[in-house]
Computed example of a mutant assay.
Amino acid sequence: MSMYFEEITQDTLYIALEIINSNPEYNQLENGNVTRTIDDMEKEFLNSQSTSVFIKLDDTYIGIIDYLLENPKDQTPWLGLLIIHRDYQGYGFGVQAYEIYENEMLDRGLKCIRIGVIKDNHKAHSFWESLGFKYFKKALWKKEIEISCYEKQLEQN
Rank of each mutant, 00 (worst) to 15 (best):
Q96C: 10
E44S: 14
N121I: 05
K119D: 08
Y101W: 08
V34R: 06
Y135S: 15
A97L: 01
D74V: 08
E151Q: 14
C149F: 07
I118L: 15
I62W: 10
Y88L: 05
D58Q: 05
T37Y: 14
N121Q: 00
R108D: 13
K43C: 04
L106N: 03
R108G: 12
P24S: 02
P24T: 00
G63L: 05
L131T: 07
K134Q: 12
Q96K: 14
E30W: 11
K137W: 13
Y101K: 01
I147T: 03
N71M: 06
Q49A: 14
M105N: 13
D39M: 07
I62F: 03
I83Q: 01
E70K: 14
D39H: 12
A139D: 15
A124G: 01
Q49H: 13
I64S: 10
L106H: 05
T60V: 13
K143R: 12
R114P: 04
C112V: 15
I65K: 09
I145W: 00
Q96W: 00
K134I: 13
L46C: 10
R108L: 11
K56Y: 02
P72F: 10
D40M: 15
K43A: 10
D120W: 03
I100K: 07
S130A: 08
I118S: 07
Y61R: 02
W78T: 04
Y91H: 09
E151M: 11
W128V: 10
F136K: 07
V53K: 04
K138V: 00
I38W: 14
G116I: 09
G94Q: 01
L82E: 02
C112M: 15
I145H: 04
L68W: 08
N47A: 15
D66K: 10
I64M: 08
E146G: 15
K138S: 12
I100E: 10
D39I: 01
F93Q: 00
D87I: 02
K56R: 12
L131N: 02
N121D: 03
K152S: 10
H85D: 13
D120C: 15
N47M: 12
V34D: 11
D74E: 00
K143A: 10
N23F: 02
G63D: 12
E151T: 05
G132L: 05
I145V: 08
Y98N: 08
N121A: 09
L29I: 03
K73E: 03
T35G: 05
Y135E: 13
T51L: 09
D107K: 12
S130G: 06
K111D: 15
N31V: 02
S148H: 08
R36V: 00
W128Y: 12
N23M: 00
N71C: 13
S50W: 10
N23W: 03
S22H: 03
S50M: 08
G63R: 00
E25H: 03
C112S: 12
I115T: 01
V53N: 08
E129K: 08
V34I: 11
L82R: 00
Y101V: 02
W128K: 04
I62P: 07
E129W: 05
